[in-house]
Design a protein around this nucleic acid. Sequence first.
DNA 1: ACAATTACCTGTATGC
DNA 2: TGCATACAGGTAATTG
Length: 276
Amino acid sequence: MPELPEVETIRRTLEPCLIGQVVERVEVLRPKHLGNVSPADLARRLTGRRIEGVGRRGKYLLIHLEGGEVLVFHLRMTGRLIFYPEGASVTPYTRLVLGLTSPAELHLHDVRSFAVLWLTTEDKVAALPGLAALGPEPLEPSFTPQGLKAALAGRRSSIKSLLLNQQTVAGLGNIYADEALFRAGINPLRPGNSLTPEEVNGLWRAIREVLAEAISSGGTSFRDYVDGRGRPGAFQTRLSVYGRKGEPCRRCGTSLVGARLGGRSTVYCPRCQPLS
DNA sequence: ACAATTACCTGTATGC
DNA sequence: TGCATACAGGTAATTG
């Protein structure tokens, strides 16, 4: 599941490959992935354009092209964006092919077909649905302990659910929400408004630390994720709680507990993250 | 305004 | 061996 560290790793691996490439061909194999544009308009607006840069906002990947066009991707859970310098044959799950300066190609691959892409322009990117209501970037100065306190004030939902809400902070998903809460020693079931100022400070720091470390490791390859060159990340060996239900806590040895919060699997240590 | 639930998808793992 | 079922989860839409 590409969360912020995975999308950032894809961005970093794709950018040097894509800058300077010219889109020569657009092949839409499954139109339902197009969020706001028809296959014909996508091809018409992209063909002949040079790629100028690759950016990221939360879990959204942004490909900037000359003329102010911006191609925005959200990979949801199983989406992959892979650059093939010599091209590649399509698979049953290839959804989009951008033919670049021959013979290079960029493929969108997605088993479950949840991924969505939009074509917009520089002046309208921030207004895209999804991007418009996004909270602060956790690794930038706009994310502050005070801002996090304000976002949690008066919220009775579980802190885990609030961290998954992209309006609280952009880019956390199920993996890093659980990991940040473990590092901060906060039980995921605690209501958001029950955290003390000191706990919010610790959570703010834990979010930034775990995301930065995961980026350094090239992301977490638990199931489907690979980077922009098709290579897996390495952070899965350093996960404290995610996917470790029933296994011993790396800090105290207590058996990790699983729960379901807002329909999502949640794992925590009942001793390091007590409820009261 | 906020909170909780469901739809969208399909490969993989599990149980009988 | 074959079949049915649960599960993975980000976001938007729906319901309370």
